[in-house]
């Protein structure tokens, strides 16, 4: 089965063609450098209007790269939420239009669950059931995944997402935006035990990183002077470690209740090297297998949406054309 996937929930306009939910034939993201030239230099950034300008060229490009035409596509999957409603509608409407015109099935999917499905595009695939952490600029969610259509949300952030905490810390330290990559690099040169930042919400399945942000702010205020250039790596490493400790601890605790032996870590922040190392160590200690998608499949992309959509379509889950977009995905809804 060939499925066209479309993703437009936030900054990226993306389309991909995936075969049998396993093999990527194309995976086009509109902020890709080579695409900009083709597109005339416009970077589709935040807005629905920009998604609108990008969506059709991106879809065309994904078909072209896959070497197929719409005649070959058996189904269309698009992100339904959560995200920026105007942006989601662009991709969702395009998917519906194609499905309607071609008389092929359409399915709208949860973007966060899509991040989990990205692992099924890799060589090594986790067995069900498993525990999954999706950690990105906009999300910090833990799930027990029994099957593609049975993902149970165990915990999520109550305020800031983990990636957002990185970005905000980078801003406070004058390291620029977005901060994830800079922090990853600087932290390598720092001592993570130098400053003891709190590990918030220890006994809850949910996350809260807003208080950690305030703790960093208080720390910076009580320093007589702004931290010297040499000290910044220590501050960054300590802050990063606080976030990682919380992510690892809660995920491993959830994994302890899951009958399966695998842990999946997905989403943009899963590219953080220290995070990967800490998860490797924790999983090894607990005798669990760790699965992390390759970096290109960790960030927002449409191949994961196509892969996830394929599995839902295979289960007979098809949506009608009146399916609406969701800005927020309420707890408890599949």
């Amino acid at each position: 089965m060939l499925v066209l996937g479309i993703e437009s929930s936030c900054d990226e306009t993306a389309a991909a063609v995936v075969s049998d939910g396993r093999r990527i034939l194309s995976n086009v993201v509109a902020s890709q450098v080579d695409f900009h030239a083709l597109y005339g230099g416009v970077v589709p950034e935040i807005a629905s209007r920009k998604h609108m300008e990008a969506i059709l060229p991106v879809i065309d490009r994904s078909l072209e790269e896959a070497g197929v035409s719409l005649d070959d596509i058996d189904g269309v999957a698009a992100t339904r939420g959560p995200g920026l409603i105007g942006s989601i509608l662009v991709g969702l409407s395009a998917a519906k239009a194609i499905a309607f015109a071609r008389e092929i099935p359409f399915v709208g999917v949860n973007h966060i669950a899509g991040h989990i499905a990205a692992i099924f595009l890799e060589e090594k695939v986790p067995p069900f059931p498993f525990t999954a952490l999706v950690v990105s600029g906009g999300h910090t969610n833990i799930y027990t995944v029994e099957d593609f259509d049975r993902m149970r949300l165990l915990g999520q952030t109550r305020d800031d997402a983990a990636g957002e905490a990185f970005d905000k810390a980078a801003k406070m330290l004058g390291l620029g935006y977005p901060g994830g990559v800079v922090i990853d690099r600087l932290a390598e040169q720092g001592d993570a035990g130098r400053i003891r930042f709190p590990r918030p919400m220890k006994n809850s399945p949910d996350f809260s990183f807003s208080g950690l942000k305030t703790a960093l702010l208080s720390y910076l205020k009580q320093c007589e002077e702004p931290p010297a250039q040499d000290d910044i790596p220590h501050v960054v490493a300590s802050f990063q470690q606080a976030i990682i400790d919380v992510l690892v601890e809660k995920t491993m605790r959830a994994a302890g209740y899951c009958p399966g032996g695998a842990v999946v870590v997905a989403g943009g922040v899963a590219a953080n090297r220290r995070l990967r190392q800490c998860f490797r160590e924790a999983c090894e200690a607990d005798g669990l297998d760790l699965y992390i998608p390759s970096p290109a499949l960790c960030t927002d992309n449409a191949a994961m949406i196509a892969a996830y959509g394929t599995r839902l379509l295979e289960k007979g889950i098809v949506h009608s054309f009146d399916l609406n977009a969701l800005s927020r995905w309420p707890v408890g809804m599949d």
Binding site: I85, A161, S327, R328
Partner: peptide
């Protein structure tokens, strides 16, 4: 706003609707 909606920071998404 119903309890099943967590009101989280919109820094990343720009707008959240409830």
């Amino acid at each position: 706003v119903p309890d099943e909606y967590y009101v989280t920071s919109p820094s990343f998404t720009l707008v959240n609707e409830y």
